[in-house]
Simulated assay, not measured.
Amino acid sequence: MEQEMRIGEEVKNKNLGGDKKKMKKKIAVLVGITLCTMLLISPALASNGDTLDIYGNANEDDTIDMRDLTYVKLIFFGKKPETELADAKYDGKINPLDFIQIKLIIVGKEKEITIVDSADRIVTVKKPVERVILFHYGATEAIRSIKATDKLVGIGCTRTSREFYREFKDLPDVGYVTNPNYEEILNCDPDVVLLFANIPCHEIRCERIRDKLN
């Protein structure tokens, strides 16, 4: 009897340990629809005319390429002024590690990437991003455009939205920005949770979601 109780307690502790380990996983919580394409394809392919808000975009144009590598080297040797996004490693200094990081971003081999989201938050995301939760159905169009719908593991939506986008109706429902289902979010085990704050009250709620998950 005592042995059975001891075995049962060991199993319980093992399960609790697994849950704690799962809870410790760093989930990147971001605001902005265009971040979908930034994270799921190589930033070197991004080009929409606006500044690409990724650290490593040293010349602050709309993509990351060899021109950024040249530019950051010129900064390092004192030939160019330092730009906000030149610190590719986001470690507070310009050095050869930034050269390496930019090269990795160009070839799509970076292990992490630091971006500025649409709420002006600086967030470092582990790569590759394989599991994504969206809290706005509009972002599914961006996911579709890069043929990455297989990365979606959960969607937060209204009932009307779910009826409209029937192809995603079987994905777990993680609630809505106003009433997120945190248990379901954790069950989905996402790498990234993507939010959309188009009105001031949603910005506050997005902050709450980020604080809860991190």
Rank of each mutant, 00 (worst) to 15 (best):
P128I: 07
E141R: 13
K169I: 10
A139D: 09
E112W: 09
L195W: 01
R131C: 04
G156V: 03
D117A: 06
N95F: 01
P128E: 08
L97N: 13
L194Q: 03
D150K: 10
K126R: 13
T160P: 00
V107S: 11
I146F: 05
Y137L: 11
Y90I: 05
P128G: 07
K89T: 15
I199Y: 03
D191K: 00
K93F: 09
E167V: 07
R131T: 00
A197V: 05
N179L: 12
L171F: 04
F135P: 05
N198L: 11
A148R: 11
F168I: 08
V129K: 07
D150R: 02
A88H: 02
T160R: 09
E163R: 12
I204N: 09
Y182C: 10
K169D: 12
I133E: 06
Y182Q: 10
S145E: 14
V177G: 01
T70W: 03
T158Y: 07
S118W: 05
K93Y: 09
F168V: 06
V123I: 15
V153K: 06
I115P: 00
K93D: 13
G78T: 00
I155P: 03
I133V: 10
L104C: 06
A139T: 09
A139Q: 13
T70Q: 13
D120L: 11
V125K: 03
L186A: 11
D189Q: 09
V116W: 06
L194D: 04
A86K: 01
K151V: 04
V177C: 06
T149Q: 12
K127Y: 02
L171P: 04
L85N: 03
R144T: 12
P172R: 01
L152N: 01
G92D: 11
